[in-house]
Amino acid sequence: MTATEYALRTDGLGKRYRRTWALRDCSLSVPTGRVTALVGPNGAGKSTFLRLAVGLLAPTTGSVEVLGESPATNTPQVLSRIGFLAQDHPLYKHFTVAELLRLGRSCNLRFDQGLAERRLAQLEIPLDRKAGALSGGQQAQVALALALAKRPDLLVLDEPMASLDPVARLEFLQALMGAVAADGMTVLFSSHVVPELERVCDHLIVLNHSRVTLAGDIDSLVDEHRLLVGPRTTADLDRAGTVVEATHSERHTTLLVRDGGLPAAPGWQSSPVGLEDLVLAYLRRPAGTEVAPTARTEVPA
């Protein structure tokens, strides 16, 4: 493994399908050895970003660098270090689990079949069962075991838990976190379920309207934002810091601010804001709102 600080970097990355931009002007870094969540509503560009990251799509503008190389060159050396689990964890449904493992072994430069077999045995998933006959949770576990058997330096997962029930979700996360703790790989996964992110992720990227609206370490993001509640005011809001969202009722005003000091005015109360409220506030911002300080300034199209 290279000792670089970032497993993935993009610069001005964009992807256009005919006349529609699926992703625009995306410059960000995914730190090595961390678990990064990519959050955004449906259609925000998450899948496009992940597919660009693993070399399944070629960028329209800008560049991607994964583990120090471009994934678009498709060299087996780079690809062998990236694991990718597509949405709905697709498997060949008529293959037995054992056949899937054999396929994995044949198609990859490195493939730790023993590791995959131990994982599946632990989960009591029979190797002679056809993939299509397994439950959704088991299929997800098989797909994860196959991806982990590559012993990737970077594991990319697209909505890995979207179709799973709560028990299967927890089991999936347990397997994933166990693997991260054992191997120290970098994980990047997309999701639109915020509450369970905080326990598994330490870095966050929020995509909205095809752009990055927020990116950073979760702990610092939570520290940097405050919720201010006070008497109704519509003027001079920025005195309190960068206002992310302002809500007014008849008598009082609620502000979500970034990098804010305390409002000097009496009657104002400041409280910490949870990750979920923070993410929701950024997702509620309309398209074209000025981007957060960590992202690049936008260039008019």
Binding site: Q174, M177, A181
Partner: peptide
Amino acid sequence: LIREVSEAVAINPNT
């Protein structure tokens, strides 16, 4: 151990 906690409660080892 950190690894045990990570796997048992499905939480990031860095946390």
